[in-house]
């Protein structure tokens, strides 16, 4: 029997407050995939991730994560939200924020009440990977927005997930740090499948293996090439996609200058 895919959605639709947010999305993510999803504001990108996480129930269609309903796959999936949706005044250190990931199902025994020395090692390694180890003892509110973002990535890594979902992880990072985060993800991608949401097509295209376009409906051909048609259907209007000196060609030849 072959391994079930990390993500398998079939004709997934989500309606929130009578508005269709996702329509007929069938997405397959295979082991080792590194997919970037682009799309305009309100295209349902975050909702797609939250549906895969089981935080938003599908209106119709099906979501399977490693062959399981999302709620049963918890502990296998890491998640980096777009915004820190917690109170930064909370009296908690960076280290304990990251350590909380050790409570993930399958990692922590139900009867383990304290974080173990091993938990601490894993948490500190994750912090080191995002360059935040020096801030381990800092209260979470005493960090900049970009630093919080890196802590959230470290927290997701500490789950040691088999599938990692990231929602605009580099939105509040400056370019050099953002670059190292992409390098880190590239380094991780053989060991886990990664789905990354971004609005920055240029940066995304340099690092991910394949790109999908989402605007309520999904346009995905399991390739890195974005056709102008894909982008235009997704964004609903012609988009200026002239690459600014990127090493890779993302767009098909579209007869520019003829």
């Amino acid at each position: 029997m072959h391994q079930p895919n990390p993500i398998e959605t079939t004709q997934l639709s989500v309606v929130l407050r009578n508005q269709p947010v996702l329509t007929d999305v069938s997405l397959t993510v295979k082991e080792g995939d590194f997919i970037g999803i682009i799309g305009p504001n309100g295209a349902g990108k975050s909702v797609l991730l939250k549906t895969i996480l089981g935080l938003i129930p599908p209106t119709s269609g099906q979501v399977r994560v490693f062959g399981l309903p999302p709620a049963a796959a918890r502990g296998l999936v890491g998640y980096v939200p777009q915004f820190a949706n917690f109170d930064v005044q909370f009296p908690i250190t960076v280290e304990r924020v990251v350590l909380a990931a050790c409570l993930a199902r399958g990692r922590a025994s139900k009867w383990q009440f304290r974080y173990s020395a091993h938990d601490r090692d894993v948490a500190r390694q994750s912090l080191a990977r995002v360059g935040m180890l020096d801030f381990a003892e800092r209260q979470i509110g005493k960090l900049s927005g970009g630093q919080v973002q890196r802590v959230l990535i470290a927290r997701a890594l500490t789950i040691q997930p088999r599938l990692l979902l990231l929602d605009e992880p580099t939105a509040s990072l400056d370019t050099p740090i953002g670059g190292t985060i992409y390098e880190l993800l590239k380094e991780l991608s053989p060991t886990m499948s990664i789905v990354l949401i971004s609005h920055d097509i240029g940066v995304l295209s340099r690092h991910v293996k394949t790109i999908a376009c989402l605007n309520i409906r999904l346009h995905y051909h399991h390739s890195k090439e974005l056709t102008t048609e894909m982008v235009e259907t997704a964004y609903g209007c012609p988009v200026d996609l002239i690459a600014h000196g990127h090493a890779h060609r993302v767009l098909e030849n579209h007869g520019e200058g003829e």
Binding site: G75, P81, A104, Y115
Partner: peptide
């Protein structure tokens, strides 16, 4: 640890299966 996580970030608690 669980009370701290649920008070701090309920969504993440759900994500990891707490």
């Amino acid at each position: 640890n669980r009370l701290e996580l649920v008070c701090f970030d309920e969504e993440f608690a759900n994500v990891v299966g707490v």
